[in-house]
């Protein structure tokens, strides 16, 4: 049988589609890419304007101004969030290495947040209590925990959704902190 070129067109189209889907599946399956993770609208833009009171009490504990002039991490956490416990040792390690970490305590009861920090340690330079969740919305947060890398000029450089695992620290966050001149 003679194969006409037109016969090959659907075959080629199929092969191209299979290659595209296959590459994506490979990224998800082997590369560990998360299919539900969203790109942040904030990366490359200045950190949002916000001012939060401390976990208990009056006045401002954390605001946009605190982020200026240093390379820092902003970590959104809550005592009721199990993955936050998972990543906590990573934050403690970063804090020991001198990385400034700022916390946004998301919709937490003050007594619970304080118990959480007393139990696991407090890696934060300052913590703002976001009891309504409004500041988190300004940061485009949709899952907990989330961590942002903010550069010296207050520009958000990276967003990490979910707990920071040792692998994320080594391959993504530490190299970025180094590149930003920390």
């Amino acid at each position: 049988m003679r194969l006409r070129p037109a016969f090959l067109v659907p075959l080629a189209a199929f092969a191209a589609l299979a290659a595209v889907f296959g590459a994506y599946l490979w990224q998800v399956g082997v590369g560990g890419k998360s299919i539900s993770e969203l790109p942040s609208a904030l990366v490359g833009r200045p950190a949002p304007d916000f001012a939060l009171p401390p976990i208990e009490g009056e006045g401002t504990a954390l605001s946009t101004a605190d982020l200026k002039g240093k390379v820092s991490l902003v970590n959104v956490f809550a005592s009721w969030c199990p993955p936050c416990r998972v990543e906590h040792p990573m934050l403690m390690r970063l804090a020991r290495d001198g990385v400034p970490i700022f916390g946004i305590n998301y919709k937490d009861r003050p007594e619970d947040a304080k118990k959480f920090l007393a139990e696991l340690g407090d890696p934060y330079r300052a913590i703002g209590a976001d009891r309504t969740g409004r500041a988190a919305i300004d940061w485009g947060v949709y899952g907990y925990p989330e961590t942002f890398v903010v550069d010296r000029d207050g520009i958000v450089r990276h967003r990490h959704v979910g707990p920071i695992m040792p692998h994320d620290l080594e391959t993504r966050i530490l190299p970025l902190l180094k590149a930003l001149g920390r």
């Binding site: 969203l38 790109p39 942040s40 609208a41 904030l42 949002p48 919305i137 300004d138 940061w139 485009g140």
Partner: peptide
């Protein structure tokens, strides 16, 4: 809302 969460 888009400014915070992107086109998604």
């Amino acid at each position: 809302v888009v400014a915070r969460y992107g086109d998604f």
